[in-house]
């Protein structure tokens, strides 16, 4: 919904009957709670009230107009201004339906959305990952598989020979990003794992993970120095 009620309560003028008040903290009170017994309660009144609410929503959503995708994404609820719009809103009010019909319509993800993983690259195009195994260690879903190998580079001797993430197993918790000491793995690709026809297709290989940056228009390099900006470990940015 567009807005939520504020947390601060309005002071009530007529409250429940106070039986006792704490001497230590006057806010702590013992009050009499009056609850009608089940036999006294008629479900009919409540049923009528409830039906009224649902009926109102039903009618509004059935006969009303849907908001545009843009309005839905921005959470806007247009208020009629011109006379024509006002007249139209009587016949067919703008309804409350929040659904965005993926894939024809797409929601704009918030900036800090945790989505599909991507592997970062150094300035020379090498993958930033040094196969330190922190992410598979911390991963609660055991979805990351890394097989390390020695690189011929004397500065950063280790790199992943295999780096695979099973996106079906992934629980999108983001702990791998937290754990990474080299800013090599990120989940800021602003997209989600693609639907696949076969389970094996959901396993993102190293090449696929590197390609995610380009596919989603993200900068594949990082300004973080840990893990090295250039080919050499000791170079500072």
């Amino acid at each position: 919904m567009a807005s939520h009620a504020h947390d601060d309560h309005e002071p009530t003028t007529t409250g429940p009957k106070v039986l006792a008040t704490s001497t230590v903290s006057p806010k702590v009170r013992t009050i009499a709670v009056v609850r009608p017994s089940e036999q006294q309660v008629s479900y009919l009144a409540a049923t009528k009230a409830g039906l009224g609410i649902t009926l109102k929503h039903f009618a509004k959503n059935l006969f009303g107009r849907r908001r545009t995708v843009d309005q839905l994404n921005k959470g806007e609820h247009p208020v009629p201004t011109t006379a024509f719009q006002k007249a139209l809103s009587v016949v067919s009010p703008v309804n409350d339906i929040e659904t965005i019909q993926y894939p024809e319509e797409k929601a704009v993800y918030p900036e800090r959305f945790r989505g599909l993983h991507r592997l970062m690259q150094r300035d020379d195009g090498q993958v930033r990952c040094v196969a330190c195994m922190c992410c598979p260690t911390v991963c609660p879903a055991h979805c990351i598989t890394i097989i390390p190998e020695q690189s011929d580079d004397n500065g950063i001797e280790k790199r992943p020979a295999v780096f695979e993430i099973d996106e079906l197993r992934c629980v999108v918790c983001g702990l791998c990003v937290e754990a990474c000491p080299c800013d090599a793995i990120r989940m800021d690709s602003s997209t989600h794992a693609k639907p696949v026809e076969e389970r094996a297709d959901a396993v993102m290989t190293k090449e696929k993970l590197i390609a995610v940056s380009k596919e989603n228009g993200k900068n594949p390099t990082s300004i973080a120095t840990q893990g090295g900006v250039g080919p050499n470990w000791r170079e500072r940015g």
Partner: peptide
């Protein structure tokens, strides 16, 4: 010390 623990086998 280079503090390259991510690469270091002793980590």
């Amino acid at each position: 010390h280079p503090i390259d623990c991510p690469i270091c086998d002793k980590a």
